[in-house]
Amino acid sequence: MELESYRIATDFFEGPLDLLLHLIRKNRVSILDVRLADITSEYLAYLERMEGINPSRESDFLITAATLIAIKARTLLPRTDLPGEESPEKALISRLFEHDQLQKISRLLQEMEETEITLWRREVIEESFSSREYAIAEVSAFQLSELFFSLVRRKEKEEFLTVAAKSYSIEAKRQEILALLDKEGFLDFSAWIWTLGSLEEVVVSFFTLLELVKRHRVVAVQKELFGPISLWQQAAAN
């Protein structure tokens, strides 16, 4: 039974500061007045209920236990405070104080979230609609790169009869892609890249695409892994 209750407690006390604050509140003292030496034994009692300490998981609890014992030892010994040295008790109490404030702020944010969550904005509905209708995955930059290199390999195998001395700029490609998207609404990237004349143009087009995705001008979607990638123009934010 004891073990059981401790298990629940560790899940609950995410860190040693949580546990300490709980003990302080249980004793009904304010953080600034608490004598840490007094709650050390209670803190250690919690740790003792643990069977087999997992150092990677419980190390934070153990460090704090060591600090508490050190604080208690200091209170038993004649004072040998060096000037300029911060006492471990003060340091721990100021951390506890900050942690307490943090919990208050978190609760406040939680209340604010609770209110705001019931007031619907435009995006909320759009998201739920699109996720139900398409269930599409946004393509990561890595997937885009993978697609790109497979396209490049295919292009390389082709034999070109003429070499056009033409250079491409990202800016021109950007306008070309956006114009195509304006006209068609969407663009099948994999098919479109085939219509390009040279490897250089493919490379420039691909960088342009990455740039557009990065700037949130277009959304790249792919319904399945290695499937065709389609582009949509993203509604202008601002």
């Binding site: 919990q103 702020i105 978190s106 944010l109 939680q110 509905i125 739920s128 609609f129």
Partner: peptide, 22 residues
């Protein structure tokens, strides 16, 4: 809209958000 759940932030996320905010 047949939306079953409304996701809320976990306490850990709220604490983290509080620190970032302040």
């Amino acid at each position: 809209f047949s939306i079953r759940t409304t996701s809320r932030l976990s306490l850990a996320s709220l604490e983290t958000l509080a620190i970032v905010a302040y």
